[in-house]
Amino acid sequence: MSQKRIHPQYYTLFLALLLLVSVVISVSTGPAQISPLAVCQALLSSIHSYFSDLLMPGQVLWQQSVVSNVRLPRVLTGAFVGASYALCGVVLQGLFRNPLASPSVLGVSSGASLGAVVAIFFGFVAISTWVLPLFAFIGASITMFVVYSIATYRGHTPIATLLLAGVAISAFNVAMYSFILSLALQHWEVGKSIVYWSMGGLDGRTWDHVLLILPAFVVCFIFICAFQRDLDALLMGEIHASSVGVDVAKIRLILLTLTSVLIAMAVAVAGGITFVGLVVPHIVRLIIGPHHRFVIPLSALLGALVIVLSDLMLRSFFYETKIPLGVITASMGAPFFLFLLLKQRKLMQV
């Protein structure tokens, strides 16, 4: 029985539009409400002076300043972080042919966090803005390659060993993280910096944060798109992949490095956010199938959308309470994911 499917390009278009609308609404929402129209006008006038005529008489410049200097960088940082986490989930689940593989399960997020905390504790962050993401990248890479090396024997990577190694290394990373935090708490300023950073979220994010994650995201996205056919083949298993010309060891090395870069940047700018990397790729696969040509862009868009909407909810309803972003992402996405899972479990023989 053939199943009539909506072409994935329509989903891409729909999600892109939805993301655009969500970004505008999110930027317009805050302690001082700015109408979506005023947001568009302010954005256009920031892009080019020609559009500054669009500003209505009496429309104060503070609106433009709030939009372009405060809210837009925060929302864009969130969008790129969400897209990065979702992309990492797509790659790891494809590489290891496992629905449970995600940055947090394999310990890579905790490795990045440990690296970042080391940088803060020893005061390296004062040197440059790039030190925090660099240390996060070192932490993520070391974790990724330790987990992968432990689980790989004679070119084969049994999934169970990989996940167990990820859990063990993640536990070690968390222990080291707690140890450093307890040492840091003896020095109030350092301790405060670590606690503030570890809460994650998007508060106070600026264009510097956007500029940290944007180039990494664009480069990694293009590279990952270049490997979409290899990821398709790897979903079928190593033997299938190598029979259609995939150099499994080489592709894994390249994609793991790209994933480490993305996770490091995401963790450095917004802290660890669970759920997005695990579930967003599944939601996309359940809707449009496993073809990476569509799964990659759609997951990036949906990941961005989830974080933008979660941040919007956080600022709209829980402004006074410091609730981590991950709580919102998980409570919004989990019921939807379970609904899709129950609807399509016949096809999910994974």
């Binding site: 299938h240 999910m348 994974v350």
Partner: peptide, 14 residues
């Protein structure tokens, strides 16, 4: 045992 919901044509296209 492919596991993921590829269509027949997608697999042949590989």
């Amino acid at each position: 045992n492919i596991g993921y919901a590829f269509t027949v044509e997608e697999i042949v296209a590989m």
